[in-house]
Amino acid sequence: MAKKDTGSDQLLNEFKALVSDTEELLQHSVELTGDKAEELRGQINSSLQRARKALSSTEQALLERGKVALHTSEEYVREHPLQSLAIGAGVGFLLGLLVSRR
Rank of each mutant, 00 (worst) to 15 (best):
F15D: 04
K16I: 11
K16R: 13
K16V: 14
K16W: 10
A17K: 14
A17V: 06
L18A: 04
V19I: 08
D21N: 11
D21A: 11
T22Y: 02
E23T: 06
E24V: 05
E24Y: 01
L25C: 11
L25T: 08
L26M: 09
L26K: 08
H28N: 12
H28W: 06
S29W: 10
V30T: 08
E31F: 14
L32M: 12
L32T: 03
T33K: 15
T33W: 13
G34V: 11
G34P: 01
G34A: 12
G34M: 13
G34C: 10
D35R: 15
D35E: 14
K36C: 11
A37Q: 14
A37L: 14
A37H: 07
E38D: 07
E38K: 01
E38F: 01
L40A: 00
L40R: 00
L40H: 06
R41I: 10
R41E: 13
R41F: 09
R41W: 09
Q43V: 12
I44F: 00
I44T: 05
I44A: 07
N45D: 12
N45L: 12
N45H: 14
N45A: 09
S46N: 10
S46K: 09
S46H: 08
S47A: 15
S47Q: 11
S47P: 00
S47G: 09
L48H: 13
L48N: 10
Q49Y: 05
Q49R: 12
Q49E: 12
R50W: 05
A51E: 08
R52C: 00
R52D: 07
K53L: 15
K53Q: 15
K53F: 13
S56N: 08
S56K: 12
S57A: 05
T58K: 04
T58L: 03
E59M: 08
E59Y: 04
E59R: 05
E59Q: 07
E59K: 03
E59F: 00
A61K: 06
A61S: 05
A61C: 06
L62Y: 07
L62F: 03
L62Q: 02
L63C: 08
L63N: 12
L63G: 04
L63Q: 09
L63S: 03
E64N: 08
E64H: 10
E64M: 09
R65N: 13
R65E: 13
R65S: 07
R65I: 13
G66F: 03
K67V: 15
A69G: 03
A69L: 07
A69C: 00
L70H: 05
L70G: 02
L70N: 03
H71I: 10
H71S: 09
H71A: 07
H71D: 14
T72W: 03
